[in-house]
Design a protein around this nucleic acid. Structure first.
Length: 195
DNA sequence: TAAGTGATCTCT
DNA sequence: GAGATCACTTAA
């Protein structure tokens, strides 16, 4: 059990929150019969109206509206006719920004193994693993909504993990300046597997 | 490397 | 209303 991250956690600079979420957990009661949790290992920041990689760059629309709303809510959208993407909204209300959740380690595979735990890698796979669909769009991350964030003790081997910052994935359309921005954050795995 | 898939957005 | 695009995944 961990401490639930309050809404205030998300009311700050987006890149900072994207880093802060690494090693934190997202917990879901959305899959019938089993609580699922992932330790977050990869995030991306989409920060403000000038970020040309962000859906909010061209102003508010029906789809991106949650990005303009209060921090700590989910922004979830559908792409390529089959995939759900999960973001959590950051920054002050009316400032469009969010953090995309791209990868995590499932707790059931992480516990008590001496092998390297398998990572759920890719935003659509992460969403599917946690049973997340568009019905969570715009809702705050709270336990009563079945999807929330927790701070917990680090997984074995991850106690002193470093963070790598690199370019965001799949945003070439944003042009050289914004696609080169190092807004992708990855929690580096331990040198040796397990603990 | 390319197909699959359909909502969304931008232009007519 | 039409056409292009897409913060991806999987099979080859």
């Amino acid at each position: 059990m961990g401490t639930i991250l309050p809404r205030a956690f998300f009311d700050g600079p987006t890149a900072e929150i994207a880093r802060g979420l690494l090693g934190a957990w997202i917990v879901s009661d959305l899959v019938p019969g089993a609580r699922r949790a992932l330790m977050i290992t990869e995030t991306e920041a989409y920060d403000g109206p000038r970020d040309r990689a962000s859906h909010a760059h061209r102003g508010i629309t029906l789809r991106n509206r949650p990005m303009f709303g209060p921090p700590g809510a989910f922004y979830i959208y559908f792409v390529y006719g089959m995939h759900w993407m999960v973001n959590v909204v950051t920054g002050p209300e009316h400032y469009p920004a969010a953090v995309l959740l791209r990868a995590g380690i499932p707790e059931e595979r992480a516990a008590g193994r001496d092998i390297m735990p398998a990572t759920i890698k890719g935003p659509a796979l992460l969403a599917r693993h946690l049973g997340i669909t568009g019905r969570m769009n715009g809702l705050p991350a709270e336990k009563k909504n079945g999807l929330w964030f927790e701070s917990r003790a680090a997984l074995p081997g991850y106690e002193h993990s470093k963070i790598a910052a690199s370019r965001r994935v799949g945003v070439e359309y944003a042009g050289p300046l914004w696609s080169a921005r190092k807004y992708n954050f990855t929690l580096l795995p331990p040198r040796r597997p397990g603990a």
